[in-house]
Computed example of a mutant assay.
Amino acid sequence: MSVAPEILIAEADPWTADLLAQLVLDVRGDARVIRVADGGAALARCKRRLPELVIADGELPGLDGVELLRQLRRHPRTPALPYILISKRLDAASVRAVRPLAPTAYLGRPFNAERLRLRLREMLPSAEGAAAGAPPALLVACLAEYLDGVREEGQGAPLLAAVREAVSQCLSCDAPDLGELESGFARDPQITARLIAAANSAALHQGTPCQSLAQALPRLGVARTLNLVLGMAVQRNALLRDPRLAARATRVWAVAQRSAEVAHWLARELGLDAELCFTAGLLHNIGELALLRSLQDWQDAGGALDEAELDEVMRRRAASFGSALRIRWRLPFGLRELIAAFYQLSSGVFSREALVLNLTGLLLNLPSEQTPSDLRSARCVSLLRLDPELLLRLPPA
């Protein structure tokens, strides 16, 4: 397999399909990953060009993963085609029915992503001189045009530097519980946002939206959570390599975490939803992090970026990147309202939690010559009927 292999992923759930793609690219960065959402499209793709590997969901709509495998095995050229089947059917009868079709691997759902990654390393040996996850060459004339193109499809924020270590510890743990996962990942904006979005996906939707990591984790479960986090950690650009971008990201992360702490403390003091306020505070500036990640991609693809241009881009583009990200991931509307309130209060009716986020924004942007007590006349303080003495008890940074 000296040339770039083509890998076909047939998976209806976009979150699982994305995870599988990231695992493949972590093993073979030069692979061409083709994604389809039903068995009919997968079969049609194989008839046009046979891939080097198929990874299929056993419960695909229309032509399911088992029938897809059966159709492929009937063709004289495809008996040896590597085929990984992922199914929730683990009863003896289902396993016996599939065995004559000789799948390369039969994985139960939820599958263990780390074990699958090790299996993929055996099946997709690295090619000499392969471009390990190199981004495509630039086909645009300037940075502005590039950012216009990636804003609606970016991968979100990079990960905190300590997250890879937390992921490694959780994967090596025999049976991590949800409390350990929450403590390991609760301060990372990217993981928090992605897990909330996944918990609110159509496949897991249960009526009431999840608006915090504490609500999302029980719905996802330990195995699915670890799989999703591993998928984020192995992405080529999960960490920023440019020292300038990494330094800015560190400052943005610090502001996000301070915002989360202040919002949580204020909400708890006022008897409000402290977890929701923590989440909104943590995610309020995720657009800045997403933009920094896109700027790393721009440079990796050969684009130039000077300091003045970096300052201008961050000032003009961060808000739109954040808005596009929250909409694309379909974060709950109530959470998005609180994030918007961090920057300004709209006209009309808003919750007391929104007032807390607005006050948090004012506190974090307070000029150095002023003290929190100078905000006693602020609109949010008045509407909250806040005791000015409370502002003097604000926990130190």
Rank of each mutant, 00 (worst) to 15 (best):
L204R: 12
A263F: 11
L8N: 01
A137I: 02
A12Q: 13
D374W: 07
L375F: 07
T225Q: 04
L43Y: 14
R326Q: 11
L282S: 04
G184S: 15
L63D: 00
S212E: 01
L213E: 03
T208F: 10
L160S: 14
D13T: 10
L160R: 15
P395H: 05
R379S: 14
Q190I: 01
I84A: 09
S87F: 06
E114H: 11
T360M: 09
R258G: 04
R45A: 15
G221P: 06
N112H: 14
E114S: 09
G334I: 01
R326H: 05
L159C: 14
A290L: 08
K88A: 13
T192L: 05
A247I: 02
D148Q: 11
Q257S: 05
A223V: 11
E275D: 15
S347M: 04
A21W: 01
E261F: 13
R328G: 14
A378P: 09
L230E: 09
L53S: 12
L138P: 09
Q71L: 13
E307I: 04
G133E: 09
F111R: 02
R117Y: 00
R251P: 01
P388Y: 05
A246M: 02
L283T: 00
A290W: 03
N112G: 10
S94W: 09
A161K: 07
R32H: 13
L239V: 04
P135W: 01
M232T: 01
Q296W: 07
R164L: 12
A97C: 13
I196M: 08
A161W: 01
G129Y: 06
D177S: 12
G129R: 03
D26K: 10
A203P: 00
R96C: 07
D57E: 15
N237G: 13
L124D: 02
R326M: 06
G179E: 11
E153A: 13
E145F: 03
P136D: 14
R258T: 00
A341Q: 04
L291N: 10
I191G: 10
I327C: 13
A216N: 04
L228M: 07
D18A: 14
T208L: 14
A113R: 04
L139I: 10
I286N: 11
L195G: 04
A198E: 10
K47R: 12
P125D: 06
A247W: 05
L366M: 05
A199P: 02
A157R: 02
Y83M: 14
G271W: 09
N200W: 03
A260E: 09
A97G: 13
L63T: 00
A31H: 05
L69I: 04
A198T: 00
C277T: 04
K88L: 06
